[in-house]
Each structure stands twice: as structure tokens, then as C-alpha cells.
Amino acid sequence: MTTTLSVRDLAVTYDNGPPAVSGYSVDLMAGTLTVILGRNGAGKTSTLRGITGFLAHESGSVRGTIALDGVVVRRPNPLRLSRLGVGLVAERDKVFANMSVYDQMRLVMSARQDMDEIFGFFPRLRERRDVRAGLLSGGERQMLATALVLLRHPRVLLVDELSLGLAPGMVRELMGYLRRLADERGLTILAADQAVHASLRVADCVQIMDSGSLVASGPLDTLDIDAVLDAYLGRA
């Protein structure tokens, strides 16, 4: 198995404050699904945003090395990472609220059959194709956000809080989609989430973050996951 995305010593700070993330490293193998678990404020979102880089007007600054297929990405920023095949499904503002499902898929797709394939993957989006995204349900928005990134044919998919505000059944369904994306499309996925059980059900590898640092990381079957979760997520 080859490493698709490699991150070394990632550090993220905001407005010269204390580091939100420090010393984060990971090697993501092709076609695997890695989940980052942690409490609120553990640094999960900052880690994903640190990998994509920040926009000029955003107050985050990043240090560390990002490499794709062994090639170091110079001066990473969201546009460059997106064009290199790293897609981010963000936690907030992840769809174009005032555009129809169809129009925003048209914006990013390169071929008509891609859209048909996505509709095959997320049939509910086909039913809602003429609805403006701001009027979709939370789960439908997550599907659309994922679909928009997938239409760009990413090699690496970063997913932030897929479960946010969704019912457990919907979370399981969406996590199942992520598993299928890794298995059927060979996508390399790094997903940050708080839905521990749903995430562990589909993950190959797990990372636990606490106070901006990794406290455990590795393939699911090599970790004493119960002990780690008890220690850092306060699971009884």
C-alpha cells in the first residue's frame, strides 16, 4: 500500500495565540479511512484546515510539511490543495445556500456521467436536484457537500464533523457512504468526528486528539481502543 498524503509536524495557530494544533503527523495510505476523534476544541477542525491551508483573510497560520504521493506541496493554500486533489467537506458553510443542487453540481463536475454516478451514490440528491441547498435538510446538505467534493475527483477526502446535528441513523448511513468511497473508489479519507461508535464501525485507522496534540494513533486493531477512549473522551 502506498502513502497518498503525508503530514509532518503540523502546527496551527490563530492570531499569534497558543497553538491550536502542534506536532501533528500522519501517513494516509491509499484507499483507507482514518478517523480523528476528540472532544470539542481538541484541534480536529484546525488539523483538517491546517492541511488545506488558510485563505488570505483568515487568521490561521500553519507550519509543517504536507506531501502528496511523496511530493512536498509548497505554500499550501485551499485553491492549490483542491487543484492537487485534496477535497475538504467543511464543518460549516459547505454548500452554496442560494444555488440549486443541480447548478452547484454543474459548477464542479467535469463530465455529465459524473453527475449520474453521484446521483447513483446519493439518490436523494436526484430527487432534490432543483431545490436550493439552503432549503435542504441537514443530512441532505452533508450528502451534497460530499458530492461536490467527489465531483472534483479528489485523491484525498478530508471530512469535518460529518455527524454534526444529525440523527444517529443518518450518521450511520453517511459513515457507510464514506466506507464505500474508500472501498469502491479507492479514496483516501481522513474524517474528524465526535460520533465515536459510528466512526469506529467504518474506520481502518484511528487518531485521538487532546489539547491540540495526538495522544494515540494507529490501525484500529493495534490500539486498546477502549482504554484510549476512556482516558481521553471520558467514556464510561
Binding site: 485563505l55 485551499p78 458553510d93 452547484q104 464542479v108
Partner: peptide, 13 residues
């Protein structure tokens, strides 16, 4: 798209 959500547009290339 840019008028709707400029940051998302950039993340989508």
C-alpha cells in the same frame, strides 16, 4: 457561486 460562498468556491477549485 462566488457571490454565494467565496470560501467554499476556493475550496472547490
Amino acid at each position: 457561486a462566488v457571490a454565494d460562498n467565496a470560501s467554499l468556491s476556493v475550496h472547490l477549485g
